[in-house]
Design a protein around this nucleic acid. Structure first.
Length: 493
RNA sequence: GCCCCUAUCGUCUAGUGGACUAGGACGCAGCCCUUUCAAGGCUACGACCGGGGUUCGAAUCCCCGUAGGGGCACCA
């Protein structure tokens, strides 16, 4: 369905951890670019030096790559339209600010921060909208030049028209009309010579030939400003798409530090780096976040190729979406079940080794079919499979006692199991099941009681993958040893 | 306070004037399967924010409320 190649960009600020919202916007950017045969670009918006956090840029790049959102151009790989870090583009913005000054759409401002702050306070006291009063709007170019030459600190402000209305067009919301008197003479270049977002983003999007700007709806307020800046340059506008924000699970407000901490306690996070550590998969995270804000009627389990195929900016939704972590679990588990055995084994191995276990690859491959459908997150493999890689297990003695039996009776059951199993040359699934079933029949006990004792003895836990298959993988000697140990434990009670 | 955006099951959403007894997914409840836990299958419960219009006809278009969200920086 592609018309012409789209160039899209994700333009995060390196001010903290990479957020879920960034990931979703990047996903949509990526899908649009790939679908149309265009390019997806990473641009770092680091013009606020005070807020820049060391390592944040790397985290963004790592996060995008982990998600599989490979960018075609970016700070670490370059590209035709670089540099891709705004602090390295200072002259470009200076140049463009001059263009605006020269064509009467911007002016130098010499007002001091404290004096502006004072005015703002007064305006608020008078219940007026805090707005720049235009003091420097009409300083003559000659005088301005002189003061600049004298080294007087100054900013550059956009000269917003006082009259009329600005009509901006958002692809999801249609025409957004704003009275110009509501708008402000925003600062374009700060005293430190670096641009604000308003100038930098507009200039870069144009210079980098971005065709579709996808960003959060928090930019809707300054959207008319941006449109005015584009028009002041006489440039063609990109297609603007303001995505809805994510709300906390209750739907009341954005995720705050408090909710983030609570989520972390529950084993969830809205930070990409955390999600990776918590055992979520790129496939799960992508599928989940994609559907918050993108209306897919049916068949909503999608991989990257399917998303690329089906994505459309026309089916994006404008209303805010409450985060639902249960649904993340669902998508994560669903994608885990879709992985091939080898793929899943590769992904699981780090979680086992992180736990200090030595992983034998053959064993790992064998246990995948047993644990796959039991995993919600990748790190669940510890709960379901750690005992395969341990020399010994240490069951809770209480757990060895079957329901309705006492320790002595349970020990008798364990002994009988040991007797049956040790008489077999091998305890593979095929040869163990039948004699064990016969024993259940004769004993008058339930499968639950007998297999329960055996399960705890062999795996060390009450909940495990299927018993006979597990014993086969653990091996005859180890199984018998573990049952003996269980008998020992029971007889001491 | 001012400006902007949004409004369908608890949640994410489909729906673009008649095909709607409003569809799907998550969750929840029940049943089946079953040696535990899952997975799987089946069934149930569950929504058009309110009020006015427009129209033969409105979830769908308009207006007014209401609610929620976002913004009002030399931050992005």
């Amino acid at each position: 369905m592609s018309i012409k190649p789209a160039r899209t960009r994700i333009a995060p600020s390196p001010t903290g951890h990479m957020h879920l919202g960034t990931a979703r916007t990047a996903l949509y950017d990526y899908l649009l670019a790939k679908q149309t045969g265009g390019q997806f670009i990473l641009r770092i918006e680091d013009t606020d030096i005070k807020r820049t956090v060391a390592g944040a840029e790397q985290e963004i790049m790592d996060g995008l790559r982990w998600l599989g959102l490979e960018y075609d151009e970016g700070p670490d790989i370059g590209g035709k339209f670089g540099p891709y870090r705004q602090t390295e583009r200072r002259e470009i913005y200076q140049h463009h600010a001059k263009i605006l000054i020269n064509n009467g759409n911007a002016y130098p401002c010499f007002c001091k921060p404290d004096e502006l702050e004072k005015k703002r306070q007064e305006q608020m006291k008078r219940k007026e909208n805090p707005r720049y009063d235009g003091k420097c709007r009409n300083i003559s170019p000659d005088e301005a030049a002189k003061r600049i030459a004298n080294g007087e600190a100054h900013t550059v402000r956009f000269k917003m028209p006082h009259d009329g209305i600005t009509i901006a067009h958002d692809h999801l919301r249609g025409e957004i009309k704003t009275e110009n008197k509501q708008l402000n003479d925003y600062v374009l270049i700060k005293t430190d010579g670096l641009p604000t977002y308003h100038l930098a983003a507009i200039v870069d999007d144009h210079e980098m030939q971005i065709t579709h700007v996808l960003r959060g709806s928090e930019w809707l307020g300054t959207f008319p400003l941006h449109v005015n800046i584009v028009r002041a340059f006489g440039w063609e506008e990109p297609i603007w798409i303001h995505l809805s924000v994510f709300l906390k699970p209750s739907g009341k407000g954005k995720m705050s530090k408090r909710e983030s901490a609570q989520a972390m306690k529950d084993g969830y996070s809205i930070f990409i780096k955390d999600m990776q550590e918590l055992g979520f998969t790129p496939e799960g995270v992508l599928n989940w976040s994609a559907l918050m804000g993108w209306g897919v009627a049916e068949d909503d389990v999608l991989n990257m190729n399917q998303m690329i195929e089906r994505f459309s900016i026309d089916s994006l939704t404008a209303s805010p979406a409450a985060i639902n972590f249960q649904k993340l679990d669902h998508f994560n588990a669903t994608h885990i079940r879709l992985f091939t055995t080898v793929d899943l084994a590769t992904r699981l191995k780090p979680y086992f080794t992180r736990e200090g276990l030595t992983v034998d690859d053959d064993t790992l491959l064998k246990i995948i079919p047993l644990i796959r459908e039991r995993l919600t997150t990748l790190d669940d493999c510890i709960a379901f499979g750690a005992f395969f890689f341990k020399e010994e297990v240490s069951p809770n003695p209480e757990d060895l006692i079957a329901k309705g039996l006492d320790a002595k009776q349970s020990a008798e059951v364990a002994k009988k199991c040991l007797e049956i199993l040790s008489s077999l040359p091998s305890i593979d699934h095929a040869s163990t099941e039948s004699p064990m079933r016969s024993y259940v029949e004769e004993s008058g006990l339930s499968p639950n009681q007998i297999f329960g004792i055996l399960r705890v003895a062999v795996t060390g836990q009450k909940v495990s993958p299927p018993l006979f298959e597990s014993m086969e993988i653990i091996g005859r000697e180890t199984c018998l040893k573990r049952i003996e140990n269980a008998i020992d434990l029971l007889s001491k009670m």
